[in-house]
Amino acid sequence: MFKKIACIRIGGGSVTHDAAEEKPVAIFVNGRHLTTVILSPGGFEDFITGYLYTEEIIRSADEIESIRIEENRISVITKNIFKRVSVKKTILSGCGGAVSYIDTQKLPAIESGIVVAVPEIEAAAAALTGPLDSVVLASEGRVVARAEDLDRHNALDRVIGRGLLDRLDLSRTVAVCTGTVTSEMVRKCLMANIPLLASTGAPTALAVEVAEETELCIVGAAGTPEMAVYTHPERIEGMEG
């Protein structure tokens, strides 16, 4: 995931630096080009499984007939080879075609009775490693998937994909990430029915608004003394809604 490159220090002297690699990867589904994404190299099976799931192209990993991974291309064949697919980003609505708000009525609400203890969130946050954006998926205090990528949205798709391939009950998991929680990350958790999304950073205002209406618990500053719950505190052990 890293390549050594030469650079010159401002104060003098040449050194080498481990630079993160990025790779443009074209995604084809049933022979049709779906999109092109920028990824960190490797782990493409996890990514494409999670990505197709959170984009509502598949409903389970079992719908994938085959995945062919080439240098800059991922080709997927689904069991329904005649299904036409398209990318579904955060759902927006507006009058006269103008974008105005996210229609939460078109997003699924979390269906889970899980209550998470604070030490579980702290342990998952401690498992975040590396210089890239990182996401950990944990269940009952145990890390069940971990991923790094140039983009935390891609890393989230990677752990969701790993969870699907391992046949995990995602309604019993929590996702913990680095960086800012966005509305798009909230949408991905809703699609996967992950009831709690925590971050070492903080959420955007829009992410909080969407999560509040869809039963998703958001935790910020995870693993620090400033850890705070932004939505649905009833999902945290010892806290009331």
Results as ranks from 00 to 15, higher is better:
Ala6Trp: 11
Gly11Ile: 11
Gly12His: 15
Val15Tyr: 09
Val15Met: 11
His17Arg: 13
His17Glu: 06
Ala20Asn: 05
Glu21Thr: 07
Glu21Phe: 04
Pro24Ala: 08
Val25Leu: 08
Asn30Glu: 07
Arg32Thr: 06
Leu34Cys: 01
Thr35Asn: 07
Thr35Leu: 07
Thr35Ser: 09
Ile38Cys: 00
Ser40Ile: 02
Ser40Met: 08
Pro41Phe: 08
Gly42Met: 12
Gly43Pro: 01
Thr49Asp: 03
Thr49His: 04
Ile57Arg: 05
Ile64Thr: 02
Glu65Met: 12
Arg68Ser: 06
Glu71Leu: 13
Glu71Val: 07
Glu71Ile: 13
Asn72Gly: 00
Val76Pro: 01
Ile77Trp: 06
Thr78Met: 14
Lys79Thr: 05
Lys79Cys: 01
Lys79Gly: 00
Lys83Phe: 10
Val87Asp: 00
Lys88His: 11
Thr90Leu: 15
Ile91Met: 13
Val99Cys: 07
Ser112Asp: 05
Gly113Tyr: 11
Pro119Trp: 14
Ile121Ala: 06
Ala125Asp: 04
Ala127Met: 05
Leu132Ser: 03
Asp133Lys: 15
Ser139Gly: 08
Val144Ile: 15
Leu150Tyr: 03
Leu150Ile: 12
Asn154Gly: 00
Leu156Ile: 09
Arg158Ile: 02
Val159His: 05
Ile160Trp: 09
Leu165Val: 02
Asp169Glu: 14
Arg172Ala: 06
Val176Cys: 02
Cys177Leu: 12
Thr178Trp: 05
Val186Thr: 06
Lys188Asp: 10
Cys189Ser: 08
Leu190Phe: 10
Asn193Lys: 08
Ala198Tyr: 12
Val208Ala: 15
Val210Asp: 09
Val210Ala: 08
Glu215Asp: 15
Ile218Asp: 05
Ile218Gln: 11
Gly220Gln: 12
Gly220Met: 13
Ala221Arg: 15
Thr224Cys: 04
Ala228Gly: 03
Tyr230Pro: 02
Thr231Asn: 11
Thr231Met: 14
Thr231Arg: 14
Pro233Arg: 15
Gly238His: 09
Gly241Phe: 15
